[in-house]
Design a binder for these strands. Structure first.
Lengths: 127, 127
DNA sequence: TGACAACTACGAACCCGTTCGTAATACTGG
DNA sequence: CCAGTATTACGAACGGGTTCGTAGTTGTCA
């Protein structure tokens, strides 16, 4: 009966990344971690995290006065959801095309190339 | 002095895909092509394309009474822009992670795997 | 204890994307 | 030529995302 979680927005994703990196955290901690890149007020971060709790993107522990938030889905699953959406709307489902553009878009170190190579190998092995 | 074009939204991307597939086209044509998947009115498509012309996402030939629209950027460049954005906001710039999720997200045929393999090879060759 | 600080809750404002209704204009068939 | 049709232009409404101000509550410490 539970619906799939909505895709996080950009601002929400920034918050989730802090939670994934650091583990469960308070609004204060997330806000501090984000203060380098974002320049918004504390209550903005608070409001966003409250909304994310409503949406189910994060869990909230209210046992203490200062609430503690945690990401509800693992990072990989959210990433897959986002990639899947992009795949549909911009690539007509062609993963190969997406990979091509991914390689062109970002600098890819030899080390990363090796990782990708292993991925391909394991996929091909399953044929 | 000209600014980079904004990222197309989802609705805009649907229109762009028609223009990429078909070449320059009228609002009528785009609307018909989209009528299978979208169920919006004609004026909605028109308005979107007018806004896209303002943004610079499409060029508009007004020489005839019925205007003809064409995508301003090639598909690959727009795709790269979108991938790049996703790479930054969801993957911390790690293309390898993105590729991994792309392979998990969509069904990848052996044929596509071979294409990707060739991509990797050419990239590694340039080391 | 009393004043101050931290935290949550809430609502309002604003922008953007999307959708559509309506009006004005040009074209076309009878 | 005239009525009907297609096309463009424009404004308005609506929802969602983001930001913040303010109020109320709880904790702290001098």
């Amino acid at each position: 009966m539970r619906k799939p979680l909505p895709r996080p927005t950009d601002a929400e994703l920034a918050i989730l990344r802090v939670l994934w990196d650091h583990g469960p955290a308070t609004v204060r901690h997330v806000h501090e971690a984000l203060s380098g890149t974002r320049e918004t007020g504390y209550t903005t971060t608070l409001k966003l995290m409250q909304i994310m709790a409503e949406k189910g993107l994060v869990r909230r522990d209210e046992s203490a006065r200062t609430h503690v938030y945690a990401a509800r889905l693992p990072q990989e699953e959210t990433q897959r959801q986002l990639v899947s959406h992009l795949l549909d709307r911009a690539f007509g489902g062609s993963a190969a095309e997406l990979v091509l553009q991914a390689l062109k878009a970002g600098e890819t170190s030899p080390d990363q190339l090796r990782q990708i190579q292993e991925l391909i190998d394991s996929h091909r092995g399953a044929e």
